[in-house]
Design a protein around this nucleic acid. Structure first.
Length: 215
DNA sequence: GCGATTTGACCCAC
DNA sequence: GTGGGTCAAATCGC
């Protein structure tokens, strides 16, 4: 179904973009300009954010979950990338409150290659980077620092459990809704077999996610 | 119309 | 040189 929709969309997209060539041309022009006059362009166009790559993150935690989106946070997708030797693309999400509150939390979600069989629920590897420094809409700090009480409060505030179908009390939780919904439907009655790969250096944010999935 | 998502390009670490 | 994380314009959907 999702596949059909995707095809449908891409078909639509192909049809609905009579100016594809134009767009490409624009991009090409833009690129060639920047190639030709790099320094000049950089003066005019706002400089690209410094892109820090590997080793950027001080903290990260990975886990396997059939419901990568139900972690009680609001995430905004900012990228998708096909990863070498991996069947499925990796999706990149950052905290929805990044702009408002400067929350640096990000996560990557990648479907596992061997999870496409009918016997097992679709499993995703979710890697969380950095910690939430944001507060949710209720002004409750979803971030870390005070570990126990904080994780408690966030759990009680956002009683999210894919199996209980209680989602965060954010009516505008459109973020990630469709895919999350799909994924959840696919797997909501399956046991969540969670594996934490890293030593459990559980800050509350990690603990929060961990508890949420019924570790 | 606005906000979210998609997607190709860019850029840096390895 | 390659892989992978991020950006940002274009597009989509409500």
């Amino acid at each position: 179904m999702a596949e059909l929709q995707r095809h449908h969309q891409s078909d639509d997209g192909a049809r609905a973009r009579p100016d594809d060539v134009l767009v490409d041309d624009k991009k090409r022009v833009k690129r060639s300009i920047s190639d030709d006059c790099i320094s000049k362009e950089e003066d005019v166009v706002k400089p690209r954010h410094k892109q820090l790559k590997r080793g950027r993150f001080d903290e990260s935690m990975s886990l396997e979950t059939p419901v990568p989106h139900y972690d009680g946070r609001q995430w905004r997708k900012y990228g998708q990338k096909h990863i070498n030797k991996s069947k499925h693309p990796r999706n990149y999400y950052r905290c929805a409150y990044r702009q408002e509150q400067g929350c640096k939390a990000t996560k990557t979600v990648q479907q596992q290659d061997d999870s496409t069989g009918t016997d097992h629920p679709v499993m995703f590897t979710v890697v969380y980077h950095d910690q939430h420094t944001c507060k949710d809409n209720n002004g409750i700090n979803l971030g870390i620092d005070d570990s126990e009480t904080n994780s408690q409060s966030s759990i009680s505030t956002i009683s999210t459990d894919p199996y209980g179908r209680e989602t965060p009390s954010l009516d505008g939780n459109k973020l990630l809704d469709k895919s999350a919904d799909l994924i959840t439907r696919n797997s909501m009655y399956e046991p969540a077999d969670m594996t934490v790969f890293e030593p459990l250096d559980l800050d509350s944010w990690a603990l929060d996610a961990f508890l949420r999935f019924g570790a």
